[in-house]
């Protein structure tokens, strides 16, 4: 069973719909036991960092996430919450990835919204994906490139498109909205 973390973030149903299309059943839950026993956990997300972290802390879900040992995938805000710190709402985050999240400098349109390809690419999650493949982004904050970075994208500056450390994976783009290539990436995660 795939568990999708239920918290105060948007687009949770689109992740569930995408898993359905791939033939995988999933539950949307914030129950620590259900999350702990799931084969895979997805932390989706469109939303605001400080209110999301507050929501997770109030329910002890921050510790639940940190204790997970199965493959975990953070998407968009999910990725940002897995970093150390976010400038959005001056927020201390989960600290899974040794990097910080910053607001794009206002030298081009913000949010970074639309389809963009990769600057660099490696890792199991993005197996079979090529640099020219476009995926869908919508975000105003980005995470800085670090040791755990497995893919980068260029908009205003190069930033983390994907990260991996131990059992934790994260992508800044929305695989659930990235047509066929997004489905391939979700399938890669489900095959881990």
């Amino acid at each position: 069973m795939i568990a999708i973390l239920k918290y105060n973030a948007g687009n949770i149903t689109s992740v569930k719909n995408a898993l359905n299309r791939l033939g995988f059943a999933s539950i949307i839950t914030d129950d620590p036991d259900e999350l702990g026993s799931a084969d895979k956990v997805i932390i989706p997300g469109v939303g605001e960092a400080s209110s999301a972290m507050k929501y997770l802390r109030e329910r002890g879900l921050d510790n639940t996430i940190l204790a997970l040992t199965q493959p975990v995938l953070g998407i968009c805000l999910g990725l940002q919450l897995m970093c150390r710190y976010s400038e959005e709402g001056d927020t201390k985050c989960l600290g899974i990835f040794e990097t910080d999240v910053r607001l794009f400098p206002p030298v081009d349109k913000i949010p970074h919204m639309g389809w963009n390809n990769f600057l660099t690419l490696k890792g199991d999650l993005l197996k079979g994906v090529s640099l020219e493949d476009d995926v869908y982004y919508v975000h105003s904050y980005y995470s800085e490139i670090c040791q755990s970075t497995t893919a980068t994208c260029d908009y205003i500056l190069p930033f983390c498109a994907a990260l991996e450390t131990k059992n934790f994976y994260a992508v800044q783009f929305h695989p659930e909205k990235s047509a066929g290539i997004g489905e391939k990436i979700l399938q890669n995660f489900l095959n881990l």
Partner: peptide, 8 residues
Amino acid sequence: IAGEINIP
């Protein structure tokens, strides 16, 4: 639509 469409 959401059930069938994989783009925003």
